[in-house]
Design a protein around this nucleic acid. Structure first.
Ligand code: MN
Ligand code: MN
Ligand code: ZN
Ligand code: ZN
Lengths: 171, 171
DNA sequence: GCACTAATTGCAACTAGTCGCAATACGAGA
DNA sequence: TCTCGTATTGCGACTAGTTGCAATTAGTGC
């Protein structure tokens, strides 16, 4: 179902990346206060949850995990905090094939995503793979593409090979 | 607000395209019945509304326009009919920057979209502009990209030139 | 430590859309 | 034209998330 969001959760980051991450999380209180924003228990909880998260999560999944630690968690607070953290650059979001937001937690490299409409699997799309497009948008349109937000939908090799119907369609 | 969806509504199609279109709409009842599906008043109304639509519309806008002609229009019926028509290939959808579905009505050529996060405007992305990416996905991943579903977000020339804040952010 | 102010929270109402199901009504065939 | 099976509709409940607002509280200055 919405497996594609949590599919890669728990996959360990490449060695070394974990180091950078904890540093980034640690400095959040100060970064908020620098901007006149506040460090609250609700925000701390969400940041703790995010710090334990690799890959992609939906807002709903984050609400749920916060609730595991604190049953009084309020969805709107979580969603508003996600907005704040994205403005701070600590997370990015893209949209799954169904249009729902999925958050990237401190991605090691900026990347987009490819989703198979048929089997629902997803893959990271690194910058080299779409470099020509980014450059062309830059040059021909003066348009600066947000790679993190890029979602490419289609049919994967397996599903095409399987003669048309690989598995249940995702959307 | 959700102006980006209706922005280009009413722009006339290139001459000649209107001809192909009416033909496509006219054959819908038969195409439905061929598949054991049915031609109902509710479906006829939506098809009439779509036939008068150019460019991009959200489901909500379509519900509203159907309601103008028939106040008893039920949203779920409209959304379900949109699914059916998309399976028939008469419409395609992509997702705006906020992830909401936008429908393309009988596009003259298959194309994707670029959205500016800052001013909210959008542009069609023709196949030549992303041909290299489509080819690379095909060759390197065996992945067949759905161009109609492609949404490229970023900042347009005007908004970048305007020193960072062009207008109100869209999302 | 106390007071003050604005950021943030909790909450409830609201939006956009989806889903299950019983009632309706296409449309193929007699 | 009538019958019948099933596709479709209407409807209400539900999901995921957003918004406005009054109450709370972080954090600054005293
Ligand atoms: Mn989609
Ligand atoms: Mn977005
Ligand atoms: Zn697949
Ligand atoms: Zn712009």
């Amino acid at each position: 179902m919405s497996a594609s969001g949590s599919r890669r959760l728990g996959v360990p980051p490449t060695p070394g990346a974990a180091w950078d991450r904890s540093g980034a999380w640690a400095s959040i209180p100060e970064r908020l206060r620098e901007q006149g924003l506040r460090w609250t228990p609700q925000r701390r909880l969400l940041v703790e949850v995010l710090a334990q998260t690799d890959g992609h999560v939906t807002g709903g999944e984050l609400v749920e995990r916060c609730r595991e630690a604190d049953t009084t968690t309020i969805p709107s607070t979580v969603y508003r905090t996600l907005d704040v953290l994205e403005e701070l650059g600590l997370i990015r979001h893209c949209h799954g094939v169904d249009g729902r937001e999925e958050f990237h937690v401190l991605p090691e490299t900026e990347h987009g995503h490819a989703y198979c409409n048929e089997c629902g699997r997803s893959w990271d799309v690194e910058v080299e793979e779409v470099g020509a497009m980014l450059a062309s948008f830059q040059e021909r349109r003066g348009f600066e593409v947000d790679l993190s937000h890029l979602t490419v939908a289609g049919r994967c090799r397996d599903c095409r090979g399987a003669g048309g119907t690989g598995e249940a369609a995702v959307e």
